[in-house]
Amino acid sequence: MTEMLKGTLEGIVLALLSVRPAYGYEITAHLRDKGFSDIVEGTVYALLVRLEQRGLADVEKVPSEKGPPRKVYSLNAQGRRQLDEFWETWGFLADRIAQLHTEHSEHTEEGN
């Protein structure tokens, strides 16, 4: 599960940022609330840095009541294009996996 998630985490985070800007801990907490309990903050922070370096997200430092300013990430036009590609690829893979699952289920039922 963890390995599969690593391959899709970028798209998931881009999707979250397409809804509204967020900072690292906020994204991690949201993912955990959605059932991704194995996600650690370090993974999300490293991913956010890569998104920024690749020009997929913009960053704004926002004052924090507790400590240093927070880096708030927002999706930019290039990030939206990357997210569109992710959804296209995801749709393709999901369709193919569903077909394989159906074939497997039919084959399994025939064997009973």
Rank of each mutant, 00 (worst) to 15 (best):
A22N: 05
L56E: 04
G35A: 07
R50A: 14
I39K: 01
L47M: 09
K61A: 13
D33T: 07
I27K: 01
P21L: 09
S37W: 10
A46Q: 07
G35I: 01
L14N: 01
E52Q: 08
G11M: 01
S18L: 08
Y25V: 11
S37E: 12
A29S: 14
P21G: 15
R20T: 06
L56D: 03
R32F: 03
V40K: 15
A15C: 00
I27R: 03
Q53Y: 06
T8W: 12
T43L: 04
T8H: 12
L31P: 03
K61Q: 13
L56R: 02
K34N: 08
L16Q: 13
D58V: 08
L16W: 09
E60Y: 06
G7I: 07
L9W: 07
V19M: 09
R20K: 15
L14S: 02
G35M: 09
I39C: 03
V44A: 00
G11F: 02
Y25L: 14
E10C: 07
Y45V: 12
L17R: 06
R32W: 06
E26P: 05
L31C: 05
E26R: 10
V19S: 12
V13P: 01
R20E: 14
G11S: 04
Q53V: 06
A46T: 15
V49F: 09
T43V: 14
D33F: 09
F36G: 00
R50K: 15
L51Q: 00
G7Q: 10
S18K: 11
F36M: 01
A22C: 03
I12V: 15
V59M: 00
L16S: 12
G24S: 14
E41K: 08
S37V: 12
V40S: 10
L9Q: 08
A57Q: 00
T8G: 06
E10S: 09
S18H: 13
D58T: 12
T43A: 13
V59I: 09
A22T: 03
L31Y: 05
R54I: 05
A29T: 13
H30M: 11
L14R: 02
G42T: 06
I12C: 01
P21H: 05
V19R: 12
